[in-house]
Design a binder for these strands. Structure first.
Lengths: 233, 233
DNA sequence: TCTACGGACGAACAGTGTTCGTGTCAACTG
DNA sequence: CAGTTGACACGAACACTGTTCGTCCGTAGA
């Protein structure tokens, strides 16, 4: 009888599988995990990137992911690796090294901004990943071709990548805060108003140049900071 | 009888209080919370900063903290505010503006490094806090005294503060990782060895200048990046 | 003396990363 | 072709996290 009921269960399972069959057994792979995770980050931000949410989007439980990914940290690494693979490196041109360097950084910035908050993972995974090393290699090639000595080149790359991460983290937090609730979201005008509200006795320069402190639309500040580093070489 | 048992309980409580009395009722204040939290971060890192751990160190439960602090985010804000209050601002001197600027950034860096990982909170709390605004004011005064125009001054300050946070976050992660277990901890020599192991075909410059990429003891890279920004002005 | 009131706090909720043990399906082996 | 093996999928659980609710209690004011 056990056999009988078992076969009946099988029968029921087969019937149920009639619907699910086409989608049914698509196996979990690292690629599917990464793709799903990126989509999640893109729409809901890095804070929403959870093993459980990724697993749920794949129609399974969190434990299933750990056969393909050691850690959430490793998943983060994979994500920024994928992002890094999306930036294209130019063949170094001696006369345009500044523009080329800034362009690569800009690509990285845009990748990070597309997936809000993911730069937090970039700050942690900086040295380990092979794909980020590819970018470092490309930037090094550009600077060396431009005639920069190896050591300042290396240190400049380090500083620039650090800045890109910090810039994108802050930009993401400002436009995609965890809680939209009460007062956390402060737009430009609000910030300006608050700066003007400061006591002039203690914050004379801040009040006087509040508009300058608050200025910089788009990526003007980003470009400025980068050019600051590159002009200094 | 209820009264009787109540008074007896009181009596027992008073007896029990004989020992606990001297330490007993020290009330919870924001200052005590902040002090405890800072001590915790100093010894165990920012990842260990938990409402529960802070509460436990104060001999109570986590709910007690929420009478004095709205959020963990607000606690983070308070912490970096306290740290910011520790940096001393010089009276601006026109001839020494670069050194003064670098010195203030160095103070901030040291504060952040003393409490490993706390700079993560600084990246989030940048604009809101009043104490960080004090530093911005000080830096602005230094640059203006040095003859820098308001707008580049403001943007440079922004870039520098961002860089300080990123630098300290990365430095903290490198020396105080979450897990000391298997392979996450990679010291200088290990990194150098791995860089040399790369395929020369794909990473020619990285392999050739591996030692330069890995160089920079102490805060040499930090000073370099800062001077890079300041020379560019 | 009685009454409010504000801080302290136990318990609980929803959610996190991660692990253990079991199931189940596929492919290689005899 | 039958049988075993091994890798993968996954349910359940553990030890945490931040945060809230309702209750308690000690002190200040009427």
């Amino acid at each position: 009888m056990k056999r009988k009921s078992s076969s009946r269960e099988e029968w029921a399972a087969q019937i149920a599988a009639l619907d699910a069959a086409p989608v049914r057994k698509e196996p979990i792979t690292v690629d599917r995990i990464v793709t799903t995770a990126l989509a999640l980050v893109e729409t809901e931000g890095f804070a929403a990137l959870t093993m459980r949410r990724v697993a749920a989007a794949l129609g399974t439980g969190p434990a299933s992911l750990y056969a393909h990914v050691r850690n959430k940290a490793e998943l983060d690494d994979l994500l920024i690796g994928t992002l890094s693979r999306n930036v294209s490196l130019p063949t170094p041109h001696a006369g345009r090294w500044r523009a080329q360097f800034a362009d690569v950084c800009g690509q990285l910035r845009d990748q990070f901004l597309r997936y809000p908050g993911i730069a937090q993972a970039a700050l942690a995974a900086a040295p380990a990943n092979l794909d980020t090393l590819r970018i470092t290699e490309g930037l090094l090639a550009i600077l060396l071709k431009g005639g920069v000595a190896p050591r300042p080149a290396a240190w400049t790359i380090d500083a620039a990548l650090l800045y890109v991460s910090a810039y994108t983290v802050e930009a993401s937090l400002r436009r995609h805060p965890d809680r939209d609730e009460d007062s956390r979201v402060v737009d430009r005008d609000e910030i300006l108003a608050r700066l003007r509200m400061l006591p002039v006795s203690r914050f004379p320069h801040t009040v006087e140049h509040a508009d300058e402190l608050n200025s910089g639309s788009g990526h003007e500040r980003f470009e400025f900071a980068l050019q600051l580093m590159l002009k200094g070489l």
